[in-house]
Design a protein around this nucleic acid. Structure first.
Length: 592
RNA sequence: GGGCACGUAGCUCAGUCCGGAUAGAGCGUCGGACUUCUAAUCCGACGGUCGUGGGUUCGAAUCCCAUCGUGCCCGCCA
């Protein structure tokens, strides 16, 4: 509704200004402060003051007089407050918001008929997922969710770096060392925790082993890379044995968030299908291309990038960026838009990639890169190779444990008589624990640096997931108490209600907040900023809690018509908060 | 050294792209509210030179310039 109102206000204001023969290039539309009753405001009068030769408040009055609110559907009145124009919502605005909100899919925008591939995480399959990268799946999944909600046809991809040197090292180490050579036990009973020990052992050997043996090992590693380059089936099988196993374990970890993927795209695919070779020859034909120190490079300094892009090693093998070029051309062929979520340390490479794609004749406007900064430990970076870092599995376990403790201590002084059993406790512990971890990450701007500290990561205080989740549980509690079956959506809620009965400030505020939800999704999708949705959930929770405090729904002295209207409002609130949480990838508990 | 990002209350963060109404939350501290649709809630108090200095503007946390601090990057690794 908010979107419709915004359009209506813009049109009306533009028309009024045209009539007065005033410029319409900047309408000054803005959202007013909380203590102002209007839904939208305009500060256009400031700019008109000079034009009209009148003080801003007087200019505002002249413009307001030119707008006939009776002709508007969602605006009841246009008022001035000093220099500001305030647009107040009509009954129709509230009524339609309430009607729309009773739809289970409220907030989901119409299909845009546009496909987008969201690539995220894409961590090298070298070992357990650690917290340093945890922002990637959490932000990436939320970005994909918000685009999905905004009406795009979304595919989620994990790009598997199975052709890089580190995988050749891993393969060599896996084939060379035995269980007996390893000094440590797996930290967890899952395949990637087992196999990462070979990777670490191999790297340690290459750094500290006897020179002659290291040379032999390097020769073997080179042979593996050459094999992949030539498309040798047997080599691919050897590498895949490691890649597929480790990746399988990583998938299990990511599924806990949950972060699921539609496709795992291996980079070897673009070597075997000839597209990397094709990219190489096209690059060689570019005038920016040079052959220096036995390697093929691209000079990008005239495009503001000082570092050359090496696209073919002196031994003739391709590099990650070379294959990624082929990968991205494939994306352009198959999708209307492409979004990549990657760490800020890849920013330079991302710029090189974009510029080179342009030089190869691609339009890179459909490509958007979302950057986030790594989570570091107080003592420095996390590294799979060195084994420094906190495993995501450990963080999630700890979060669930702490949430469980919390549920159990609250069990005793619980007012609600719904007898949570052990399974409920476990469900809530998972929903709250994992939800808190996700929410904490998705609610912040990705570019802010984060230093990992256990206590901070596991702080479940207000303004975190449980605060918002609790609102959903409260909605469900009311609906359930009213005898509505939550399984069947809204079928039990009377939808033909009189929205004008919802006349307290708390009810109006809640409706206005619900009305904004589709616009929040729209904006968050346009900016690829899911944290806008998180910010919204907090505001929403505040508004709902005020309503909850002031407006009893099921009390005996509530008029039956008002009760029905408030029930519809609660149903709308529930759909809003459930769908917002769903975009964030945070579970919406029915009770807690 | 060069490039990019970040700097808002004691702490963690919104707001910055697109300049407008007394800069908003939470945590912490202090004081209140459960015989009530779940108190993981709510209400109140205290707390801010929006890193610093200039500039543009009727108006700057927001735009421009400079400067300081922090992080990231500047491999024939990915």
């Amino acid at each position: 509704m908010f979107l419709a109102l915004r359009t209506e206000v813009e049109d009306a204001l533009r028309e009024a200004l045209s009539t007065l023969e005033l410029p319409t290039d900047d309408l000054g539309i803005e959202e007013p402060p909380d203590d102002v009753d209007s839904v939208l405001a305009s500060s256009v009068a400031f700019r008109l003051a000079g034009e009209l030769g009148a003080a801003p408040p007087q200019a505002a009055t002249e413009v307001a007089d030119e707008i006939d609110a009776d002709e508007l559907t969602y605006v009841s009145r246009v008022e001035t407050q000093g220099p500001y124009l305030n647009f107040l919502p009509s009954e129709a605005y509230f009524a339609e918001t309430l009607a729309n909100g009773t739809d289970d899919d409220y907030g989901t925008l119409p299909d845009r008929g546009e496909s987008v591939v969201v690539e995220h995480t894409s961590a090298n399959p070298t070992g357990p997922v650690h917290v340093g990268r945890a922002r990637n799946p959490i932000i990436g999944d939320a970005v994909a969710n918000v685009l999905d909600a905004a009406g795009y046809d979304v595919d989620r991809h994990y790009y598997v770096n199975d052709a890089g040197r580190q995988m050749a090292v891993f393969t060599w180490a896996y084939e060379t060392f035995d269980e007996d050579d390893l000094e440590t036990e797996p930290e967890r009973d899952r395949i990637e925790y087992d196999l990462v020990r070979y990777y670490r052992k191999g790297n340690e050997f290459l750094e500290e082993g006897p020179e002659s043996e290291v040379e032999a090992a390097e020769a073997e590693i080179d042979a593996i890379m050459q094999g992949l380059e030539e498309g040798d089936e047997a080599t691919y099988e050897r590498v895949s044995e490691v890649v597929d196993q480790v990746l399988g374990g990583m998938k299990e970890c990511l599924a806990r968030l949950p972060a699921e993927f539609d496709e795992f795209v291996k980079e070897t695919r673009f070597m075997f299908d000839g597209s990397t070779d094709d990219v190489v020859s096209r690059l060689q034909d570019l005038e920016e291309s040079v052959y220096e120190e036995d390697a093929w490079q691209l000079e990008l300094d005239e495009y503001g990038i000082d570092k050359n892009l090496v696209f073919l090693r002196s031994d003739g093998t391709s590099l990650y960026p070379t294959r990624d070029l082929a990968h991205h051309e494939w994306k352009f062929d198959n999708y209307d838009r492409a979004v990549t979520v990657l760490g800020e340390d890849h920013k330079l490479q991302a710029e090189q990639l974009r510029q080179t794609l342009e030089l190869l004749g691609n339009d890179t406007d459909p490509l958007r890169q979302v950057l986030y900064s790594y989570v570091n430990l107080p003592e420095g970076k996390m590294s799979t190779r060195r084994g420094t870092g906190v495993d995501l599995d450990d963080l999630l376990d700890e979060a669930i444990d702490r949430a469980r403790e919390e549920v159990e201590t609250r069990l005793d002084d619980r007012i609600r008589d719904d007898d949570l059993d052990e399974a409920d406790v476990e469900r809530i512990a998972h929903q709250v624990g994992i939800g808190a971890v996700r929410y904490d990450i998705v609610a912040k701007q990705p570019t802010k640096a984060i230093t990992f500290e256990w206590d901070r990561a596991l702080d479940f205080e207000a303004q975190s997931a449980p605060y918002v989740q609790y609102v959903h549980a409260r909605c469900c509690g009311i609906l359930e108490e009213a005898g509505i079956d939550l399984e069947t959506g809204t079928s039990g809620v009377e939808t033909d209600v009189d929205a004008s009965l919802l006349e307290t400030p708390e009810e109006r505020d809640l409706l206005e907040t619900i009305a904004r939800f589709p616009a929040v999704i729209d904006d968050a999708a346009a900016d690829l900023e899911p944290h806008q949705v998180a910010t919204y959930t907090r505001e929403f929770a505040e508004r709902f809690n005020a309503f909850y405090r002031e407006c009893p729904v099921l009390a005996d002295d509530v008029d039956p018509d008002l009760r029905e209207a408030r029930l519809a409002l609660v149903a709308a609130a529930r759909h809003t908060i459930a769908n917002a949480l769903s975009v964030l990838g945070v579970a919406a508990p029915r009770s807690m």
